[in-house]
Lab assay of single mutants.
Amino acid sequence: ELSWTAEAEKMLGKVPFFVRKKVRKNTDNYAREIGEPVVTADVFRKAKEHLG
């Protein structure tokens, strides 16, 4: 699991709890794919757009 900024964690907190774990995993995987060592708010937004 990658490191997350406080802002990205806050955004994740707005995701319904029953899918939060999956969203975190998918976002981590997306960040790795694009070469990001940390999940930022920008990476979170891009993952959301990319993953739907």
Rank of each mutant, 00 (worst) to 15 (best):
E36V: 11
E36T: 07
W4L: 01
D28I: 07
D42G: 05
V23H: 05
R32C: 06
I34H: 14
V43M: 04
A6G: 08
T5F: 01
R45F: 08
E7D: 08
E1R: 11
T40D: 06
A47H: 05
A41R: 06
D28K: 02
G35L: 05
V15T: 06
L12M: 03
H50C: 08
E33Q: 11
V23R: 04
A8T: 02
N26V: 13
E9V: 10
A47K: 02
T27K: 02
E1L: 10
A31Y: 00
N29A: 14
K21T: 12
A6W: 09
A47M: 07
A8H: 01
V19C: 15
R24L: 04
R32N: 06
A41C: 07
L12P: 00
G52P: 08
V39T: 02
K48C: 14
L51A: 10
K21E: 15
L12F: 04
T40N: 07
K25Q: 14
K48H: 12
V23C: 07
D42T: 07
L12H: 01
P37Y: 11
G35Y: 04
M11L: 15
V39G: 00
M11P: 00
F18K: 12
G52N: 13
V15Y: 13
K25L: 14
F18T: 09
F18D: 11
A8L: 00
V23E: 03
L2V: 10
G52T: 12
P37N: 12
H50V: 11
V38N: 05
A6T: 09
P16W: 07
A8W: 00
M11R: 03
S3E: 14
I34P: 00
T40L: 01
E33N: 08
V39H: 01
M11I: 06
D28M: 08
L12G: 01
K10F: 12
E36I: 07
M11V: 04
K25W: 14
K25A: 12
E36W: 07
E1T: 11
A41M: 07
K22Y: 13
V39K: 00
K48E: 10
R24D: 00
R24T: 02
V15L: 15
A8R: 00
G52Q: 14
P16Q: 04
G35N: 08
D42R: 06
R45T: 09
E33D: 11
E49V: 11
E36G: 02
T5A: 04
R20A: 04
V19I: 14
R20N: 03
A8N: 00
G13W: 09
R45G: 05
G13S: 15
E1N: 10
L2M: 11
T27R: 02
A31M: 02
W4N: 01
F18H: 14
N29P: 00
R45M: 13
A8K: 00
K25F: 12
K10C: 13
D42P: 05
F18S: 11
S3G: 08
K10I: 12
P37C: 10
M11N: 04
S3D: 09
S3Y: 13
N26D: 14
A41S: 07
A6I: 12
D28T: 07
V23T: 07
F17G: 11
E9C: 10
A47W: 10
L12C: 02
F18I: 09
F17R: 12
E7A: 09
I34S: 08
E33A: 14
V43S: 02
L51H: 12
V19H: 15
L2K: 05
N26F: 15
T5V: 03
P37A: 12
V43T: 06
Y30S: 01
K21H: 14
Y30V: 03
E33R: 10
D28E: 15
M11K: 04
K10L: 13
N26Q: 15
K46W: 08
L51I: 12
F17E: 13
L51V: 09
T40Q: 01
R32F: 06
T27S: 04
G13L: 15
F18C: 15
A8I: 00
F44K: 02
E1S: 11
E7N: 05
L51D: 06
G35W: 03
L51G: 09
A41I: 08
P37M: 13
K14G: 06
K10A: 14
I34N: 10
E33I: 10
V38I: 12
E7I: 05
E7P: 04
E7L: 06
R20Y: 03
F44W: 05
K22P: 04
P37H: 10
V43Q: 02
K48M: 15
V38A: 06
